[in-house]
């Protein structure tokens, strides 16, 4: 992978790597992609993509609002202002 492509990929991932990790992961990625490329030799175009390994019937629940009894506990995991979770600027 070209350096510029790798840097763009890191930006997409929102990742910042140390110089050492950058060198290591970049070299690993080239080897791993070479390994991934070996699936090209298998002809399987007549098979549809299997998004799940088993048939799963549609289990969607109806779209009703249900109160969650433990909202305070959820908020305890974050920094809050009044009853809002404080997040970064957008």
């Amino acid at each position: 992978m070209e350096d510029k492509d790798f840097d763009r990929l890191l930006k997409t991932c929102r990742l910042r790597l140390s110089e050492e990790d950058n060198k290591k992961i970049k070299s690993d990625i080239d080897n791993i992609l070479e390994y991934f490329n070996t699936i090209e030799s298998v002809e399987c175009s007549k098979y549809s993509p299997s998004y799940q390994a088993i048939d799963i019937p549609s289990n969607k629940r109806s779209d009703n609002v249900e109160p969650f009894p433990n909202t305070d506990q959820i908020l305890k995991n974050s920094k809050i202002y009044r009853f809002y979770v404080v997040g970064p600027k957008i």
């Binding site: 990742l15 990790d21 992961i25 991934f36 399987c44 098979y47 299997s50």
Partner: peptide, 30 residues
Amino acid sequence: AKRRLVLGTYVRSASVKSKYYEKALRLRHM
């Protein structure tokens, strides 16, 4: 985790998705 994040993001990208991700899903079916 960082290595898998980078690779996972790459194999889902539009230019190579059918080469890696979709092909892997077909291979699973086979």
